[in-house]
Design a binder for these strands. Structure first.
Lengths: 339, 339
DNA sequence: GTATTTTTGAGGTGCGCACCTCAAAAGTTG
DNA sequence: CAACTTTTGAGGTGCGCACCTCAAAAATAC
């Protein structure tokens, strides 16, 4: 049986009231007594029963994911996993919800954030680009005692674990290494595509990509980034143009989550087979991998992302340190064999 | 606020005692009343507060990992993660321990299993090869109410989630695809190495490997599996022999967890650079990836493995269904960029 | 030394639920 | 309809802890 507070009181030679004071940091305890209790804790290996603590405190957790309102398949996958997490975290007294917002409008987003009530929301995960407005709003949330993590987007603050997502520089580097290896020594140009280069993550990926290609694959030349803006016709025009100028394109790297448009359009304009690498696991990319339309997917486990964000928020509220090895989001390489 | 049993009683128009009878399946309740309560549960979305339940029931979980007593680096990594899990699951009233055993001796292992007491052990994760003795012992454990999962080794029963680990056939296929792609069209022979081919996992990996190589890379010829038996000198002799007979070896696939001996020895006998793929993330394989001594690692996240085993055991004891998407162990491809 | 402040102890209540007992109410049987 | 049997309700206790009050003991000040 695990020792209880009562056992601890006996071991430390104090009363339950004093144990309570020490455990909960209440005032009016001599330093000597605190030490005595802490030593007893070490000796008998006392660990608070979190379930009982939360029960007595009537604590529950209400978390919210703020996601873009316009979305591709990857967002649908995320929403699905949030629903799943909602069920599995119900056991731990955590309620999880998702809200779709026009995250690209910093003012609307900031307004929404200021409207959040600390009574009904203990933590939020925000998937939105950086902006001064949002940064301020986040700081005000923190002041009001609402925990925040940046989810997939935004500028991660170094050293803190307030960002949930992969290291995008490393992700770009990984893509580059794969394109390099898969090219098997052939020379050629690499077409690099993104929905937009405004996003911080695309910029990071591009930097990581170029670093590896330039260092390790002198035979490959990455072209300047091309933006689809989610527009099929535009993409087609750009591709036709690029291929006209560079008939020796041998690879495609799609940096943003929405891979459908570039993958479809490139098959219309490219004559020779290319090495194609895209990001994120979605129904489309899965099917494309299986059918051989693309060669590899650089992914982050979306279920893990969601759960990790929740666990980090929860740990912060409980004043615990999340398990670093569990919360590190891995850069997954998917090929058709390990789907 | 979440509805409590009291709220449920009001909603269903019955007393708390009846709620208790229904929730805990006690006898003496009319079917009509049961229906009434269940409908009320649906209506107000009642979910039992697991923390309170476990508190009232004084329930705690004691789990044990049974691991081989002779071990390579991968086992050390596993043990480290078990220690880590021990800390993080303490919050959930679960105690986790690891025991090293001569798992290759079915009689000793079976004897140990029979000696387990259901009072002090609620679940175990076994990493041991299949044998009739062990299979029987496991069945007796289950009869005595001790939950069991097979951990990494053994013959997974189809359809049940009593196996924690990757699909080894797919892992072998993944290795093959990578060797194929990384070879860049060159022809050659592939040296396939294992510590022993007795183990079920090596056999599966080999099958998956051959399937892909034969189907997709006719220019590559996998040689018959070579067994190191953990013996450096033996391995060296075999390698020298093999290279003498097959000077055109262009790739190495190490199927078992211990990659140190084959990777070191091959560098002594191979003249030309090879494509080298090994299994499992360990300090050695990490360093080898970084320094370029190997090209890729097929890994399973060992922290995830451990936590998954614990969660599955816990869910079974609670009569819950574990979250399938979380418990699926992914086949990770590691290169130096995504470590 | 006494007066004052600080530290400690004793005890109670409630969190949401399991588990138990006993009595009252509702059904069933002949 | 009485004599059952089955179903339901009322109420209590405890799980391990938080949080509160009040009084007693110990340390400190003057």
């Amino acid at each position: 049986m695990r020792p209880t507070a009562k056992d601890l009181a006996v071991e430390a030679g104090v009363s339950l009231a004093t144990i309570d004071r020490v455990l909960n940091g209440r005032p009016g305890v001599r330093p000597r007594t605190v030490t005595k209790v802490n030593e007893a804790i070490e000796r008998i290996g006392f660990v608070r029963n979190l379930a009982a603590v939360n029960l007595a405190r009537k604590k529950s957790y209400q978390f919210r994911f703020l996601l873009p309102d316009h979305g591709d398949q990857f967002l649908d996958v995320l929403v699905k996993h949030i629903e799943e997490a909602k069920k599995s975290f119900a056991d731990e007294m955590a309620d999880v919800a998702a809200t779709r917002l026009p995250v690209d409008d910093p003012y609307k987003l900031a307004a929404y954030l200021s409207g959040l009530d600390a009574e009904t929301t203990q933590g939020i995960a925000i998937m939105a680009p950086e902006s001064p407005q949002v940064r301020d709003a986040i700081n005000r949330l923190l002041e009001r005692g609402i925990e925040v993590v940046q989810f997939l987007a935004g500028q991660p603050k170094a050293g803190s674990n307030d960002f949930v997502g992969i290291n995008n520089h490393a992700a770009g580097a990984t893509a580059a290494q794969l394109i390099g290896r898969f090219s098997g020594g052939r020379k050629g140009k690499i077409l690099v595509v993104s929905e937009t280069m405004q996003a911080h993550d695309s910029i990071e990926r591009r930097l990581g990509f170029d670093a590896v290609i330039n260092r390790e694959y002198p035979g490959l030349l990455p072209l300047p980034s091309v933006e689809t803006r989610g527009d099929t016709a535009r993409t087609r025009r750009i591709f036709e143009n690029v291929f006209a100028n560079h008939p020796d394109i041998t690879g495609l790297y799609v940096m943003s989550a929405e891979a459908r448009i570039p993958v479809r359009e490139i098959s219309m304009v490219a004559k020779a087979p290319l090495v194609k690498i895209v990001h994120e696991r979605t129904p489309f990319t899965e099917a494309a991998l299986k059918s051989g339309k693309i060669d590899a997917v650089i992914a982050q486990n979306s279920g893990h992302l969601v759960r990790s964000a929740i666990r980090i928020l929860k740990a912060r509220i409980d004043q615990r340190t999340p398990l670093a090895s569990q919360e590190k989001i891995r850069i997954e390489i998917l090929i058709k064999e390990n789907l």
